[in-house]
Design a binder for these strands. Structure first.
Length: 105
DNA sequence: TACATGACTATCC
DNA sequence: GGGATAGCCATGT
């Protein structure tokens, strides 16, 4: 496990239930632009329950691939149950459900 | 070391 | 609003 992944997992695990974050925000929190690398870190996520990767969406509110192309549509319903409104693989009130990291900088 | 890949983002049409 | 293109960074071969 790389230190980069640790940072990603650490941040994602900080996202409270009913909230979501974006790859871009994570990038900001990590002070990097490795959005894709973040996605990859999550896809090889060894700590599935610890790291709620289903709470990470794309910057435009789209769910991305973790529950879209992949057969994980159940996670979408889980988000809805947690309070996040989802409409056709996309977060409805992104601004409302968006969790912003208060990172030092 | 160099090239290819991807759960992305921003921009242009 | 939707599709195509280019730029990004971390990983794996």
């Amino acid at each position: 496990m790389t230190s980069f992944q640790k940072q990603v997992y650490s941040l994602v695990s900080k996202v409270p239930a009913g909230k979501v974050t974006t790859y871009k925000l994570l990038g900001q929190a990590l002070d990097t632009h490795a959005y894709q690398a973040i996605g990859q870190a999550l896809k090889v996520n060894p700590n599935a329950p610890e790291v709620p990767c289903h709470r990470v969406v794309k910057s435009n509110g789209d769910l991305g691939g973790y529950s879209g192309k992949l057969n994980h549509s159940k996670k979408k319903e889980l988000l809805v149950k947690e309070g996040v409104k989802i409409k056709r693989n996309q977060v409805v009130n992104l601004s409302e459900s968006l969790f912003v990291f208060k990172y030092p900088k």
